[in-house]
Design a protein around this nucleic acid. Structure first.
Lengths: 163, 163
DNA sequence: CTTGACTCTGTATTCGAGTACAGGGTTTAG
DNA sequence: CTAAACCCTGTACTCGAATACAGAGTCAAG
């Protein structure tokens, strides 16, 4: 609204963003942004005279990537590694590929396990709902499950919403 | 407990176990066992004169259940609730059933997501392996992320490592 | 009797991925 | 000009699921 608006700063391509704006556009909290920066995922942004962080809009892409990768089960340190590789300009994907391959295996393994258990749970549940009870057993789950042990690591995928 | 005889000794179980033996047989660390006990997942075991915990071999089943449930995404507090319900005995499983039902939905939801991730990951991976590279796509996952053009300063190692 | 292995309680620390202040400085709308 | 709304650094805390350690007691073998 004022004459000397921020538009004056809109020089070439991307408009400078303050951290709050980045947060708003990326859906990642301010504190988390600073946390990422500390952790080396974001690199250090420019600063105003008074020390405010000034971001280039490309940071939004990066953040988007981070979110995506997270959702795919990458940890922040893996993501950091990927980004670092990419920046080093070296044949980027070697490492990523390994990570991904590993993730895939893990995922498959887990899903298999889950399907198995789903069957059991589902079965138990149906039985309950039909009979109202399960022949004396502890709900068929505690003492009855016949799954032979699994050696899966109880590593939970990094997901927020499903917990 | 009217009668004095210990079933555990009769039912072909092994002799009473000390915590270290339980740990060894269950694959769960001693500290974790005490942690579970504190958290109410295990109930209080008997004690020797001198205060050592004495377990009945039945505990191994319980621990097995706990492990399995964990792997499948149940939290310790949910597991605790299930077990507590069982302990309460009466018209069992009401709550358990809810938990299970809920968990089942979650499981389905989660598997759906996983399948989606899998597709994405798998797709990216195949593409890599075919082409050896992914033009412009940062490893197919980072699609479009223009990492190299953000206003980054060369990374410095953080104190906290985030390896 | 004396090691050494085991166990006890209680408190602290770890890890990942953030969140929440406290105690300031800055920018901006009215 | 002033108050609200930002932003800064730095530290501490959260949560879940354990681990680790300190300092002390106990048990079995030699």
């Amino acid at each position: 609204m004022a004459l000397k608006s921020k538009k004056a700063l809109q020089i070439g391509s991307t408009a400078p963003l303050k951290i709050g704006e980045v947060a708003k556009h990326s859906g990642i909290g301010i504190e988390a942004l600073r946390f990422y920066e500390r952790g080396g995922l974001l690199g250090r942004p420019g600063r105003t005279e008074s020390g405010y962080r000034v971001y280039d809009a490309v940071v939004l892409k990066r953040l988007d990537f981070i979110k995506r990768a997270q959702v795919l089960g990458f940890s922040l340190s893996e993501i950091k590694r990927i980004i670092a590789d990419k920046q080093a300009g070296k044949s980027p994907c070697l490492e990523v590929r390994d990570i991904v391959r590993h993730r895939l295996e893990e995922l498959d393994e887990r899903m298999k396990e889950m399907r198995r258990y789903r069957r059991e749970l589902g079965g138990a549940l149906t039985k309950w709902e039909e009979t109202g009870e399960l022949d004396g057993h502890v709900c068929g789950l505690i003492e009855g499950t016949d799954i032979e042990h699994s050696n899966l690591t109880p590593r939970r995928l990094t997901k927020k919403k499903l917990n």
